[in-house]
Design a binder for these strands. Structure first.
Lengths: 216, 216
DNA sequence: TATTGTGAACCGGTTCACAGCG
DNA sequence: CGCTGTGAACCGGTTCACAATA
């Protein structure tokens, strides 16, 4: 019966732990420990245990964690045991690359629609989808029960597109556009901004003195 | 003469402020304020001023900031006034999409080489580049003076590719692979993991109670 | 004995109130 | 008078030491 106030950094790390557990399972490993997960995730074992403690007790003292069990629990915690219906808005190069991406089913993300504002693109195929005109968005989102959208339009139209998605009832946006979106509190946005990442990287390379102390 | 211990969240926000200033400049706005930047970035005005204070004094009391000046200062702080030579490793769909991306020059990121482990891809064109075999990486990185790399290989080969880049002298990696890289402290990594973002989004949608209190 | 689970201490980032100045 | 710049208070996340227990 969880539990408010989970740090968002914790959520990010849980996603990492889940991936590591999947890898361990593929390697045939049956059990693991906070120490092993910590090493692979580049965090401390304290941190791993504290992160898990927000949600319950999943290990056995003296023995560690069962890989399959912990993996199942993390999937449940992260909301990855139910299907999510997804649409793409903006079928430029990035939108098309995402439509072609093969591994969404891995956690039951179901790509069901793709929209573009350019009428010339309507009717073209991308991945297994037919691109639809942006005018169809409201009706189709409602009809398909779209839960979340990949927003891959230019920054200049990101807010307009986000408004349309919100009005249509979408509750989550993975925002690839370099723009801060204004949405109601009931709608969740996760930014994926590689240009911003590139600039953060440039900063780190120009200021080696921040963040970490040098060693030996 | 700055200054250690700048929070990494501050660096991320500086990148946002820079983008907003660029937009303001394009709109023809001459001056702005911590208030205006804060509103557009969805943070508090305190936060804007504190972030800037890590690096100096850029405004005029009573009047605010000159857009052009503050923009120039942020570019300098973020290391965006010098050219960066960039290579792509992994010419799958994502690598090709990045090679085609037109706007790197905007801040003088110069895409100069593209590598792929698949010999069948060597010699193919992508963007303005000819794809080279991965065996050429060490020599070409040294020859071109590559500063940073976009790592767009599958997760299973990410660490091997990172090792090769580090050995070749690359000092920064924009890591698109879903993997935690193990690199020396002198090498900087910035992760861009959209699958992780997707899972964080799923979590938020399943737990509306965390992070923010509901209103109205 | 080994490793988890957790309350408390610590630290760092954010918030704030107000001093400083144009 | 208005808005910036900043030292201090506050708060929340991380670190830690240790109690719990298989």
């Amino acid at each position: 019966m969880p539990n408010p106030g989970v740090p968002s950094a914790t959520v990010g790390r849980l996603v990492t732990y889940l991936r590591l557990l999947t890898e361990l399972e593929e390697e045939g490993t049956r059990t693991t420990s906070s120490d092993e997960l910590a090493t692979r995730a580049h965090v401390s074992a304290f941190q791993v245990r504290k992160d898990l403690a927000y949600f319950g007790r999943f290990g056995t003292r003296g023995a560690g964690y069962t890989v399959a069990t912990l993996r199942r629990e993390l999937r449940r915690i992260l909301g990855l045991t139910r299907p999510w219906t997804v649409a793409i808005v903006g079928m430029g190069r990035l939108g098309q690359a995402l439509a072609d991406y093969p591994n969404f089913d891995l956690y039951d993300f179901r790509l069901r629609a793709a929209f573009d504002a350019d009428p010339a693109k309507a009717g073209l195929h991308a991945g297994g989808l037919v691109i639809e005109p942006i005018e169809a968005l409201a009706d189709r989102v409602a009809e398909l029960g779209v839960d979340m959208a990949f927003l891959t339009v230019p920054a200049s139209s990101a807010q307009v597109a986000a408004d349309a998605l919100v009005a249509a009832g979408v509750r989550g946006i993975l925002n690839f556009a370099p723009a801060v979106l204004d949405v109601p509190e009931t709608v969740h946005v996760e930014p994926i901004d590689f240009l911003a990442g590139l600039k953060r990287l440039a900063y780190q390379m120009v200021r080696p003195g921040d963040d970490d102390a040098a060693v030996g």
